[in-house]
């Protein structure tokens, strides 16, 4: 089990401070949800953690190793994977090929020029397992561009799983997914609990409070509260800033 420690992380775009002195402690094996209103800087924070965006200052620490200056591919190889809020797959590849590439990234050299990759059983088998875990194995041979929105969300998850992550960064995996699809997705994530450390950004409050061990609230780039779901829900600052009294009463 690997944890993720973030210390005093900052990021500005011009005069706009998008990540403002963020510190987070994600314990090994926990599911840590980050919630906050639109424009709070959640996706920026995930991008900084995954290495897609360089941070202005502060440190990111994965299982005791400082990865602040490491580019994204290196972090993935250390076991830090992300899924994207806006589906980002290889549209001209089948679902299986999308996932098999993620397996290939960690299994052996990709400087192999002669053997056909499509029949590499080790890659395809591991990819099928990841697809099955994400609930998409029945659509393995469909081109990614032909998949539905809900299937794209599952493909995102399967690709992230196929990198064999220790820490999984999930950027709104439920965006645009509703009803039974969403319930099944939440069940799937629950099954990964204890096996993976997860950082979850999500707007679906039901999902967040069902899944999270701890919740941090991000507003204008700052963490204004962090703790057990119940404590955060009852935190007056959070209710004022984000949840609103309505939600507090309903809960």
């Amino acid at each position: 089990m690997t944890g993720l420690t973030v210390r005093n992380l900052n990021k500005s775009f011009g005069a706009l401070k998008v990540t403002d002195d963020v510190s987070l402690e994600v314990a090994p094996g926990e599911l840590h949800a980050i919630i906050g209103p639109n424009g709070a800087g959640k996706t920026t924070l995930i991008s900084q953690l995954s290495g897609q965006l360089a941070s202005d200052s502060g440190t990111v620490n994965l299982g005791g190793r400082d990865i602040t200056r490491m580019p994204m591919p290196g972090r993935v190889r250390l076991g830090l994977a992300r899924s994207f809020q806006i589906t980002s797959v290889l549209p001209g590849f089948t679902a299986l090929e999308n996932v098999a590439l993620a397996v290939q990234a960690r299994k052996g050299s990709s400087f192999r020029f002669f053997a056909p990759v499509a029949t590499e059983a080790a890659l395809n088998d591991a990819a099928m397992r990841a697809l099955a875990e994400a609930g998409l194995d029945d659509r393995a041979h469909v081109l990614a561009r032909s998949l539905s929105h809900g299937e794209h969300r599952r493909l995102e998850l399967a690709i992230a799983l196929a990198t064999d992550p220790k820490v999984l960064l999930l950027d709104e995996p439920l965006a645009g997914v509703g009803g039974e699809d969403a319930d099944a997705f939440v069940d799937r994530l629950r099954r990964f609990k204890g096996r993976l450390t997860m950082v979850l950004i999500e707007h679906d409050m039901d999902a967040v409070f069902k899944l999270a061990d701890r919740v941090s609230v991000l507003v204008y780039g700052q963490i204004i509260a962090s703790g057990a779901p119940e404590d955060v829900r009852n935190d007056p600052a959070v209710r004022a800033a984000y949840l609103g009294d309505e939600h507090g009463e309903a809960a």
Binding site: S50, Q52, P71, M72, P73, V76, R77, A81, R82, F84, S88, V89, L90, P91, G92, F93, E97, A100, L101, A102, Q104, A105, R106, G108, S109, S110, F111, R112, F113, F114, A115, P116, V117, A118, E120, I159, A162, T163
Partner: peptide, 28 residues
């Protein structure tokens, strides 16, 4: 023909399709 259907070829084609995704699964 061998090259484009190899591991290397799949990575090359993947980068054409979506370079950010390729970085996010661990390819530079």
């Amino acid at each position: 023909h061998r090259i484009v259907n190899s591991r290397f070829g799949r990575v090359l084609t993947g980068i054409r399709e979506n370079p950010v995704r390729m970085e996010a699964v661990g390819f530079a």
